[in-house]
Each structure stands twice: as structure tokens, then as C-alpha cells.
Design a protein around this nucleic acid. Structure first.
Lengths: 208, 208
DNA sequence: TCCAAGTTGTGAACACCGTCCACAATGCCG
DNA sequence: CGGCATTGTGGACGGTGTTCACAACTTGGA
């Protein structure tokens, strides 16, 4: 129930709606981002949204992109928490581990946003879209790809095996995230989930 | 627009609604299973559904269970297509590969049903529910667990490593399925997807 | 400076959805 | 044969996405 606007124009309605949409997604996943509710929270009539988004789907897509940016932030945070040290190879493996951990941590701490981020259909052509990027301008996909490149540079992975490796690592980590959020792993203790995550990341690591 | 029923009672409305729900899910995923449309297809008033399902959620849950049974069928089909031969260890590895392939094949051929099957929240306590079982009475989870047991019996995996192994294999395969259906791998050529699947299954195989 | 044109918000309306209530038709059991 | 639980119907309510016509405001050029 925000107070009535002073001016007739809102100022930045698009951003406000996107923000409300993110709140809704955070609380209830993609299905909870309801156009009318978003406009209600912003204190504007339902139809005003149509000046900034073609559709509910368009609003949801924008929310999804923003949520992917937040996922990228979580991955980046995990990367930044690493202490430098060891050989280049060790460092690169540590960074691969961090990227995966950050991804899963995001799913655990923001399941609604995670679902909103990765349930909306998209394809490879959008994996580099700036709209999906985090604070540092990189998308989750780009962060992963960067770490894989480091592994190649460090000689841990043959350059001939590099192509498409993103999909293997992503699959494993994404799958675990889904199973933890609303699959059979839901409700398991944090310790058990942590242990499973470590084993999974080991599997990825050894399986290249 | 089915012809009006001869009898006032329908006969087996619950099964008919479930079937209509499966059709809807097949065409449009979980969001497409809308209660009113299901009753419409069956030729019954919207409220009739409430005599057999508490909720739209209950109908969707039933659809999800049935879809998991179909996934189990796809996995079982892949298993049955294997030709016996080789050592016990080789056979067990082949069966692990088949289980994963069958799972991904189901996602590719029935993306709507796949989403309906695995997007609905559930937890481990339901992983053995007979409602989710396929023709042979086994759930997808049980099929996977069985193959992992074979690997242990064949000496390919140490018994001490067995616990929770389902989650590693499942994560990888489930993640790839999701990425293929509406993730960045969407729209890739079948050859590329097949190649990625093989590499992924190799990763699982070697990563135990 | 003023006014025409574009932009952005409003209000009313429509169709559709899930769900609840009261009621009717039906099958079953004593 | 008669009562009763079961199963389907009809009508209604509030909520949703979306469209159309219109109003308020901003802006840029004569």
C-alpha cells in the first residue's frame, strides 16, 4: 500500500515492476510472479505494466534474466572467497569447485529465484546476454567457461576435449540443485547435502 | 466435444481425468494441466473433478506420478534392448548406461510429461511409491538403484561407496535432461546432444 | 510561447481459471 | 420398496491476463 505518487508519471516503472517481480519469484518461484500483484505492489494500475512489458511472459523473462545475474553473483562470491596459492592447476581446480558450490548455494538459499532463473526456456544464443550477467558483467555460463579455460591453460584438460565441456559440468551441478530444491533430496540435512555436493564435484573433477 | 454420456454416472471419471491431464501435460507441461479443460475433454462439469481430486494440485500430482511411471517405462525399454554378453562388470556398466539413456530419451521425446513428472515437488520418502512405478512396478529411482547394486555386486564399486550414489548419477542425467529441454542445449542438433550424452555418461561411469 | 504529437498511466470490460455452495440424479443395501 | 451415501450439475465469487478507449502528462518544433 505505498502512498499515492506525487507525480502522474512513475519515474521508472519498469525497474519497479521488475523488482516487485523478483520479490514475488523469491517467495514463490516463477508461478508466483503475477502481473497484477506486481503492479499492486508498485501502486499502479494493472495495465500500466503493458507499457513496459508485452506480456506476463515478458515480465517473467526479465525476472529470469535478473535472477541469473544473481546466480552469477553467488558464483563470483564463492570465487572471490578463495585464497590464492598452490600450483596453477590446483588453483584452477579450486575455482571449478567454487563455481559449482556457488551455483548450488544460490539454489539452496534462493530456491524461488533459482527456479525462476532456470525454468524459463532459453537457448545457447542467450547464454552470453548481458541481461543475464551479474555485477561483474559475466553470466553464469561465462563464469563456468572461464574456469574451464583456466583448466586447459593449466594443462589439466587437453584442448581437444575442451569443446562442450560446459554442458557436462553444468548438467551435474544443475541436476543436483534441482534435486535438492524439489526433488528426492529435498528435506535432507544440510550435512548430507554438503557431502553429496562434494562427492558430485569430485565426480565432475575426475570425469573432466 | 464427446457425445453426451448414456448414463448419468461416468464410470471411471478419475481415470478419465487423469488421462486428460496426461494429454494436457504432454502438450504443454505442468502449467497446461488445467482442471476445467480436463473436465471439458471428458465431457463432464468442472466440479465433478472435485469428487475425485481435492485440488488442481492433487490432479497434477497424480499426473506427475503417472508421468514418472512412463519415465520408468522408457528406462526399462532401454534396459531390455541390451544384448546380454561380456563379463558381469561389463553388463552392469552397460545397464547403467541404458538407464541414463532411457531417462534422457524420455525427456527428449516427451518434454511436457518429463517436466510434469519432475517439476512437482516430492521427497525421498515418495521415491518408492508404487504410484510412480512403471509397467514393471519399479520407479525410476528404483531402477537406478538396482543397477548401482549390480555394479557393487560385480565388484565395480566398493560397498563403502555405495550409499547415496543414486544422487550423483541422477543429478548428472537429470541436469542434462533439463538443459536439453529448456536450457542452453535446447535446439542443438540431435547428434550434438547424443555426443554430449555419451560424454556425460562416461563422466558418471568413471566418476563412480 | 503554444500547441500538436507521442508517451505513460487509468478505467471498464471480457474471457478464463480454481473453488465453494446448494441441489439433482443415481446406485446400493436393508 | 425406501432411505442413504455417492457422484454429477448449475450457479456464483474472486482472482487472473489482456484489450480498448480515454486521460494526464512531457516534449519538441513553428
Amino acid at each position: 500500500m505505498p502512498p499515492p505518487r506525487a507525480t502522474y508519471r512513475h519515474g521508472d516503472l519498469r525497474a519497479a515492476l521488475l523488482d516487485a517481480g523478483l520479490q514475488l519469484a523469491r517467495a514463490g518461484g516463477p508461478d508466483a510472479v503475477v502481473l497484477r500483484e506486481a503492479t499492486r505492489r508498485v501502486g499502479v494500475s494493472p495495465n500500466a505494466a503493458y507499457r513496459h512489458f508485452a506480456d506476463r511472459a515478458a515480465l517473467l523473462a526479465a525476472v529470469s534474466d535478473a535472477a541469473q545475474g544473481l546466480a552469477a553473483d553467488s558464483m563470483k562470491t564463492a570465487l572471490d572467497a578463495l585464497t590464492a596459492g598452490g600450483t596453477a592447476a590446483e588453483a584452477a581446480r579450486g575455482r571449478l569447485h567454487a563455481v559449482g558450490s556457488g551455483y548450488i548455494a544460490f539454489a539452496q538459499h534462493e530456491p524461488g529465484l533459482f527456479r525462476a532463473a532456470f525454468t524459463v526456456p532459453s537457448d545457447l544464443s542467450e547464454a552470453f546476454s548481458l541481461a543475464k550477467a551479474g555485477r561483474d558483467g559475466l553470466t553464469p555460463f561465462q563464469l563456468l567457461a572461464g574456469v574451464l579455460d583456466e583448466l586447459v591453460a593449466a594443462g589439466e584438460i587437453g584442448a581437444d576435449r575442451r569443446l562442450g565441456l560446459e554442458f557436462l559440468a553444468w548438467s551435474a551441478v544443475h541436476g543436483l540443485a534441482m534435486l535438492v530444491i524439489d526433488g528426492p533430496l529435498r528435506g535432507l540435512t544440510a550435512e548430507l547435502i554438503d557431502a553429496t555436493r562434494e562427492r558430485l564435484l569430485d565426480m565432475v573433477d575426475s570425469g573432466l
